[in-house]
Amino acid sequence: MFYGRLQALNEVPAKDLFSVGIYKRLLLFFVFSDQFCIVLFFIQIDIMDLKKGILLSSSNRKVCRNLFGPVDRDQLHAEYQEILQKVTQDSALKWGFDFVNETPLEGSNYQWERVPSGKVPALYRSCFVTASIQGIRLGKENEPVALEQTGKPFSCQNQESTPKKCSSGVLKRKQTNITDFYQSKKMFVQRTEKA
């Protein structure tokens, strides 16, 4: 495979590639190293460089930038309201229900019946998101750390009583890691042993 790749360097854009500085390290490593994993590692980096070289030619420019001037705020807001109204009207017609006032409309194909909130699954109840959600929004790089920090609410007790999760104000999770389940399982086993 490496052989093929080296040939590729000689192919069409080779001169260009080299002047962009792509593959430099790769070549050096071919010459001086026969360790498979190290070479592979460098290949990965150099593919990234290829991408940067081709697509992000002016990468030292600031990414945070305003391209075409200020947005037409008021008009945007007006259009948004218009569409929101239209969407609301359409869904009211479709479902025969006035979603704004929460009352059934007459003469529709659906019959509506009131259900007390205690009888519906937790999913349909309004959720209060606490401040602890900010811990989870640290961004991709910090994700594992964030999960550890917020690990507490996902103990086995909470797993067993899902409906309580929302009503007690515990944050609703975005994504489940397999390790979360390991963690709670471990705790569960330990506890039963103690008991």
Binding site: F18, S19, L27
Partner: peptide
Amino acid sequence: TLDEEVDLSCTPTDVRDVNI
């Protein structure tokens, strides 16, 4: 750095002969 890199562009021909 350009000169250095132009130099390098001749390298692959040699490197191809390296048996990996």
